[in-house]
Design a protein around this nucleic acid. Structure first.
Length: 493
RNA sequence: GGCGCUAUCGUCUAGGGGUCUAGGACGGAUGGUUCUCAGCCAUCUAACCGGGGUUCGAAUCCCCGUAGCGCUACCA
């Protein structure tokens, strides 16, 4: 049997991390099996579906680097791949079901249904459609129609028996038919409901495996019943678990970023997002955890997907991100940092290639996210530097700062080479001459040159800041220290 | 309420009757390296939800609880 899977989002918002993981698992399974990955848009909810959401979902999938073999944009043998364009299929299948006695029109109004459920709730009964329009006579139907009522089409659910399947990630699951009711197939406006459209499309698109979130487990028995009524063998089902927030509740906006491209804004690289998502609910062996998409496509196994829900852990995501950042080639890393910075108001594209490479090397392993480049690299990105209060306060408490920084400015000025090496030699020589530890001098220089207590290596910093600006910052800091430090008086002769 | 799913360190997980004094990773802690930080190295921290079975033996199988989550729409 050839493997055909699909990711079928409904365009009612951004691509959520849960959806992204479902899409990923589908692609991974398809590729690992030499199968086909289909993208289908389930927009039968006219109320909530929007063009903008469809676009956002595409954008999210593309950002991640996912690729599908059939879909609205790439076409394919079983199109169209947008449900609102597949009306003819649903109509045909509905007619089949009506003809075989598996479906019937129901004319209840929303108010009548509400009343029915209320009454059931009052009696502590399970709330489900009681089948009141199941066996209407033609005359009764005509009467409703004449009264202007538009029917929905309901599925005639068997009153007894069980429906069961062997879920790839959860094993055997079964439902008693009696807990199901005559669910709606086609709404009064003619649009199919999820359960119906889904089955029709999976059938028509020859889907072999349905990989989706476990919020669909309770839909599965209904769909299975439909396959049976239609006389078809159902696909194999695999229900992955939910992704939770740190509080153990279903991940949502209040946990922060949930749409995948929001993570791009946070400085997460798509390779890392994919890797992390794959690990949320799947593992190769519990030992290896760093994978590229291509590697995942080789080693992924649906049966190794974990049935229990997983908490989305940002710390781990950032760690995975840091690992992927390191794996990038230097050119790629320069490119991505440059692009990220540009999107956040810092243009380093005009700098020399040598400067940019040095900048990225200086940032080095400090980058957990691309955004860290803004923080660690700020000293090199802006002209005017306001020292952080805490760092400055500490400097004020140190002795002889003006002499040292002033001396360093002099030394740098008279360093003919101005390379990282020469700067180091110059600085260390000065420290020796002043009789202080190099670390002392460097610490003061760090605050003067970067405004912070933490920065990349000081000689890289000097080189990146440039001779003029470095001298300038050192002198300014010296002057300001003299003006503000209680220790300044004793510093003067 | 009904139905369903899930249950190993704080988090992601390995482990599926003996090899488990439960392994790896993130996080945290400590020490080393270093101009700070990061990194790297070393060490440490911390778990089988509870109770009953089955068995010579259970984290692993069964049952019952409990908890969390999902579904219970003319949403998907």
């Amino acid at each position: 049997m050839s493997v055909r899977v699909r990711f079928a989002p409904s365009p009612t918002g951004h691509l959520h991390v849960g959806g992204a993981r479902t899409a990923l698992y589908n692609q991974l399974f398809a590729r690992s099996q030499g199968g086909v990955f289909v993208l289908r848009i389930e927009d039968t909810d006219a109320e909530r579906s929007t063009e903008a959401s469809t676009a956002a979902i595409f954008e999210g999938l593309r950002w991640l680097g996912l690729t599908w073999d059939e879909g609205p944009d790439v076409g394919g043998e079983y199109g169209p791949y947008v449900q609102t364009q597949r009306g003819a299929f649903y109509e045909r299948y509905r007619n089949t079901l009506v003809a075989s006695g598996h479906a019937y029109p129901a004319y209840d109004t929303p108010e009548e249904l509400d009343a029915m459920r209320e009454a059931q709730a009052l009696r502590q009964e399970p709330q489900r459609y009681d089948g009141r329009h199941r066996s209407l006579t033609q005359a009764e139907r005509d009467a409703f129609a004449a009264a202007g009522r538009l029917p929905v089409w309901r599925f005639k659910c068997p009153a007894s028996g069980v429906v069961a399947w062997d879920d790839i990630v959860r094993g055997p699951i079964e439902f008693q038919n009696e807990v199901l009711d005559d669910f709606v197939l086609v709404r009064s406006d003619g649009l199919p409901t999820y359960n119906f459209a889904c089955v029709v499309d999976d059938l028509e698109m020859r889907i072999s495996h349905v990989i989706r979130g476990d919020d669909h487990i309770s839909n599965t028995p209904r769909q299975l019943l439909l396959y049976a009524a239609l006389g078809h063998v159902p696909p194999v089902f695999a229900h992955a678990s939910m992704i939770l927030g740190p509080d153990g509740k279903r991940l949502s906006k209040r946990h922060g970023a949930t749409s995948v491209d929001a993570f791009g804004e946070l400085g997460i690289v798509p390779e890392a997002m994919l890797n992390f998502l794959a690990l949320l609910g799947w593992s190769l062996d519990g030992e290896h955890e760093l994978f590229s998409l291509a590697e995942l496509e080789q080693v992924f196994q649906l049966a190794r997907v974990n049935p229990s829900p997983a908490v989305f852990d940002t710390d781990k995501l950032e760690w995975v991100n840091a690992q992927h950042l390191r794996r990038l080639t230097e050119d790629d890393r320069v490119e991505r940092v440059t692009r990220f910075l540009a999107q956040h108001g810092y243009d380093i594209s005009t700098r020399s290639p040598e400067w940019r490479v040095t900048f990225i090397r200086a940032l080095g392993d400090r980058l957990r996210t691309l955004r860290d480049a803004e923080g660690y690299g700020r000293f090199a990105l802006v002209d005017a530097l306001e020292p952080e209060p805490e760092a400055w306060a500490e400097l004020l408490g140190k002795p002889e700062v003006a002499v040292r920084l002033g001396g360093l400015a002099e030394a740098i000025m008279s360093d003919p080479e101005f390379t990282q090496q020469s700067l180091e030699a110059t600085t260390r020589a000065l420290a020796a001459q002043l009789g202080v530890k190099a670390g002392e001098l460097i610490g003061a220089a760090r605050v003067a040159l970067t405004g912070r207590k933490v920065s990349p290596g000081i000689f890289e910093v000097m080189w990146l800041v440039g001779r003029e600006r470095a001298i300038d910052r050192l002198r300014q800091a010296a002057a300001r220290w003299t003006a503000e430090s209680p220790l300044a008086a004793s510093d003067l002769p």
